[in-house]
């Protein structure tokens, strides 16, 4: 640990002021803070709460049902980021669909799904496009490549989400946000800076290494002590104020805003992205004339409250009992980045 990071650690451990609530919006932050043991450094009056920034966790139940319908009713090959496979739908997860004969393939990148479609011209391949601004450029590149190659057997089932309207929904749930560094690497810092100047919302952009998380937390604590709203970029080696302009252009060329359902939070207007009409041939809902499918979440699951920082995962009645990573009841217990999975993995229960 270098001198600056050690100084940051001292600021955190030495804090003795008023109670503070700091929300790590991003699921990867939740996981890394646990993994690096940083929670143990915090004095009791600092409460770190987990936010809704895990795309797997906020994917609506109905989206899983739609994917199962495409796999089982239409015989499509479903390509997906691996974490989605065990997320519960209304009746089954994609793993359950696979047990019934569905062809479900984990991929690292949507571009791998395009390659698979090229190799299997007699099969329909659907990529499940979930994720925030960070993973959206890859889905857009896949759609563009499929269009350029005139691929007739590739489409996207979209549930992409954007952060700005989610921040609006979260205002008041914490004294400061740790903003997700890799979202800002794409979008730039204007939204967060504006939240500060126009609505008095405080936060810092944080990276993911021990040094970056320590400095982000120390800066947050020091500036909260000063009592003025603030915004700081604590991840300048990756995040520029203007973001990735070519990626923003690409997203706006291929996709457009839409309303989007967040698991547990409900419908947030303008918080999603869907393919533009020029890409309708690559929109699985249009291509397969999908009926309206509405999912029913398990009533025992309190993911919604966890994702808004209203309760801790261990306050959920089924945490660690009926709901474990092997038998997840809700999405937050599935993904490594989910708050319930992180609490389970690092709370001495395993």
């Amino acid at each position: 640990m270098n001198e600056s990071a050690a100084r940051a650690r001292d600021i955190i451990t030495g804090y003795s002021g008023a109670p503070l609530r700091i929300m790590e919006v991003c699921g990867t932050h939740t996981h890394e803070i646990f993994r690096l043991g940083l929670r143990k450094l915090l004095p009791p009056q600092i409460d770190l709460i987990s936010g809704p920034g895990c795309p797997v966790c906020v994917t609506a139940v109905g989206f899983i049902d739609e994917a199962c319908w495409l796999a089982l009713e239409k015989g499509c090959i479903i390509c997906t980021f691996g974490d989605l496979i065990r997320v519960p739908g209304t009746e089954m997860s994609l793993a359950g669909a696979r047990a019934k004969g569905a062809d479900i393939r984990p991929v690292y990148s949507p571009l791998d799904a395009v390659a698979l479609a090229k190799e299997n011209p007699d099969r329909q391949v659907v990529f499940l496009a979930v994720g925030f601004e960070t993973t959206m450029p890859s889905a857009c590149l896949a759609a563009k490549e499929a269009k350029a190659a005139n691929l007739r057997n590739f489409s996207l089932l979209t549930a992409n989400k954007t952060m700005p309207n989610a921040y609006q929904a979260l205002i008041g749930s914490a004294d400061a946000f740790l903003y997700p560094g890799h979202v800002n690497a794409i979008t730039g810092n204007a939204t967060c800076a504006k939240l500060c100047t126009e609505q008095g919302v405080s936060g810092v952009v944080a990276g993911f290494t021990a040094s970056e998380l320590l400095t982000a937390l120390a800066v947050t604590i020091r500036l909260l002590e000063k009592g003025e709203p603030f915004f700081r970029n604590c991840y300048p080696r990756v995040v520029r104020d203007e973001g990735n302009i070519a990626a923003i252009r690409l997203m706006n060329e291929v996709m457009e805003p839409c309303d989007s359902e967040w698991r547990g939070l409900g419908m947030i207007p303008g918080s999603g992205m869907k393919l533009r009409p020029e890409y309708a041939d690559f929109d699985a809902r249009i291509k397969f004339a999908m009926p309206e499918i509405t999912g029913k979440p398990n009533p025992a699951c309190r993911c919604g409250d966890v994702l808004q920082g209203k309760i801790r995962p261990c306050d959920c009645k089924v945490f660690g009992k009926g709901c474990t990573p092997l038998h997840p009841v809700g999405a937050c217990m599935v993904s490594d980045e989910g708050a319930c999975a992180a609490y389970y993995q690092y709370s001495g229960l395993v």
Binding site: L111, T135, P137, R237
Partner: peptide
């Protein structure tokens, strides 16, 4: 991220 380079970075978090 997901097979796409999203930012040029420096490798020195210290």
């Amino acid at each position: 991220h997901a097979g796409v380079a999203i930012a040029k970075i420096t490798d020195d978090d210290a």
